[in-house]
Amino acid sequence: MSLALTLHTVPTVPLEAEVLSPARLAGLSAPEAAKLTVVYGNQRADLGDFFKVGKGADGELHLTGDLARVKRVGMGMAEGRIVVHGSAGMHLGTGMTGGEIVVEGDAGDWVGSEMTGGRITVKGNAGHMVGSATRGSAVGVRGGEILIFGNVGNEAGSGMRRGLIAIGGDSGDFAGVNMLAGTIVVLGRLGWRTGAGMARGSIISMHPAELLPTFAYACTYSPLFLRLCLLHLGRLGLPVARSQVEGRYQRWCGDAVELNRGEVLLLDSAPGA
């Protein structure tokens, strides 16, 4: 599956294009791929109505253009690799089980919501509900990794059960809300009410934050797992500093209204640390 698609017509209403997924395009020639059905508003359209489809060479799917209004790229994908040279719309990699998506620009809301495996990397910013549960569901991400180099909106990792979400910039409010387990690393600043309702899991930030009254300070130490985790993120290209790897972290336990087995780790900026 080697295809390169370039957006030639910017949709004026939302375009739902879950066909932009390695398995759906596997074995298709460029003209065959251009015939695939997308949902354009309330009507069908062909992929070729919006994209110039060309051959690729490296076994990957390359998408070029401003895809901000193109939803569901890589939704449910299980293998292969998608590279978006530009920005991606909502539901990028929602429910994916494997493979990799790389977005050079920004991504919309619900990046990787309810995914179970694979990796999504967004070099720019992402919207709200990154790696979240959808409304009504208790469980969000069940596995896999989401890396956002820029900032994200609210509710990143809501209901997360397993996996890793790493944010190079700042997070909005309610990061890790209702988290069941898993890890969220925010190299920038946390928004408000981080970890509200979390049962288990870890939320890490490199900046001070005011936590909910149901979180209690435990100690300041250097958790080894975090070292592993930060080294891993460094290898994946996030700007993790040596001082963060070696650093000491305040451990806050919560959320006391729930199971109280979660933690928020804040890099201790105290002198001498």
Binding site: P213, T214, A216, A256, V257, N260
Partner: peptide, 18 residues
Amino acid sequence: DFEVLWALRALVKGRKVD
């Protein structure tokens, strides 16, 4: 409001609030 409600929940459940 959220902080107040959350503190009330904790107190109802017999947990400590700072």
